[in-house]
Amino acid sequence: MIEIKALSRKWKSFALDSLDLTIRDGEYFVILGPTGSGKTLLLELLAGFHRPDSGKILINGKDVTDLSPEKRNLAFVYQDYSLFPHMTVKKNIEFGLKMKKLKAPEKFREISEYLNISHLLERHPLNLSGGEQQRVSLARALVTDPEILMLDEPLSALDPRTQDSAREMLLNVHRKGKLTVLHITHDQTEARIMADKIAVVMDGKLVQVGTPEEVFEKPANDMIADFVGFENVLKGRVLSREKGLLRIDAEGTVLEAAGEVEVGDMVHVGLRPENIVLSKTFTQSSIRNSLKGTVIEVQSLGALVRVRMDCGPLLNALVTRQSAEEMELAPGVPVYAQFKASSIHVLR
């Protein structure tokens, strides 16, 4: 368990202001915040690369605030992977074992195989692809058997297709080792589909902690709501795939979408609220998805209005205030929510 108590630190243009946070053992904990909010600084404080100006950090009840990084038994994976360019992949992975005077040939082999890097061991990091570098960096971190794995924007440097498999790999590593994972990201969808728990950090302050449902469905204030957005994310299963068009069973409703997944795959379906067209009657058009539903809530956001609907699954749509007024949208009003197959974002 990691306990952070009233942690403050100023560094360059970043500042963390009296943060309190508890992370339980075995949690996949995501720290979500916009760029420049001080997320990486928080992680580096936990790792011991910085000392706090005030406050305390406890790991498993032990005060580690003044402990140097090498004594904390945490593994840190940077966004750029920070592999040692002058060492082979093998030497990179062995580095931690050498430093901690451990011998773990079994573990080394197991992790290399599991992360599919056995064939890269004699290569140098500069000749590897981003995905390969990440797997090596992860292997290097995991081989020393850390209590906590810290990931700094682990997916942002990867191309979208590699991201899918990397996301899966990280979750598998987490489940397999019952590892406590601390994952930093600015990507709302990533946080939502990976996290057991999310802490939202904005301007150096912790503004909300909760499960993904709590953070995304009940943002604590307008600023958070604005940042996390109302992106609709549904769980689903691919029913069929024909000429690139997928039919996905998303929480009981069949949607049509485009994407690179296989029949039978469990997927997440992302749909931005501004891509949903509302109409009062069903209209024939090239739009592939048309769901009948009822308005639950209408919330004004300045020039825009957020419309929450029950269409089977709950969906959020964003429309202009003018449209909402012309359509007389109010709780209980029946509407059709329409969106193109191409505006659905399918994530494995």
Binding site: P69, S82, M99
Partner: peptide
């Protein structure tokens, strides 16, 4: 990049070893 030193330290290297095995050769 100081991050390389940080990575070395999180892997159990005291600063002098991170300097000797990572920073100095590079």
């Amino acid at each position: 990049n100081p991050r390389l030193e940080n990575a070395a330290r999180s892997l159990g290297a005291p600063l002098w070893k991170a300097f000797l095995f990572v920073t100095l050769p590079l």
